[in-house]
Amino acid sequence: MMPVKTFKIDGQDVSGREDETILEIARENDIFLPTLCNIAGLKPVGACRLCMVEVAGSNKLLPACATRVQEGMEVTTNSERLQKYRRMILEMLFVEGNHICSVCVANGHCELQWLAEKLGVDHTRLNYMFPAKEVDVSHYRYAIDHNRCILCTRCVRVCAEIEGAHTWDVSGRGIEAKVVTDLNTPWALSETCTECGKCVQVCPTGALFKKSRAVGEMVKDGQFLPYLKTMREVDNA
């Protein structure tokens, strides 16, 4: 039996199993926490820092996606400081790549764009970096536009954890980091890609898309992940 912890999120009494995270319990209770790297069904990496919360007694902010619940903890999800940081994180993503929402396949169906609207980001004070990034359209079904990649690594994880192909990984580091297939070979030449398309569906932006989709037509569906996980568990049981 997994012990159950009771604690507070934004003053609201909630409870969760000890192996659950603050994020999971917040979602369960309809408390909004923005996330980009996190997606239900994949291992959390705590990379995007959007779901950071304040926990009473700790002077450090904690990523809700990677923090287990504890008895009696008091979590604040939406202080002014957190809102400010979250907006800045989104601004960072906008200036780091070339997110031209207006001509993006995911326009209107993009998690980054949606969060910007939701959190009130109507411009950014940071400096647009206008990097020269590539587009790989070699694959006959899918394409990747690195200009729109926010390095959430959902594609890397879904490919390794769920599909088991590990076609994707991250190369380089820092601001030069980018996702690659195999040895940075054009996607079409990847020996390991199973063409399952899971990476496309979990991608929060228009970075990964079906080539058959025009601007604004790429609607993502990441909902299959919990289903796959559950069915796998049922079958293995």
Binding site: V103, V105, V135, D145, R213
Partner: peptide
């Protein structure tokens, strides 16, 4: 240059 051709109508509309 380098853009997928399906993007062109919306891009060129701009």
């Amino acid at each position: 240059e380098g853009r997928p051709f399906r993007e062109m109508p919306a891009l060129m509309a701009r």
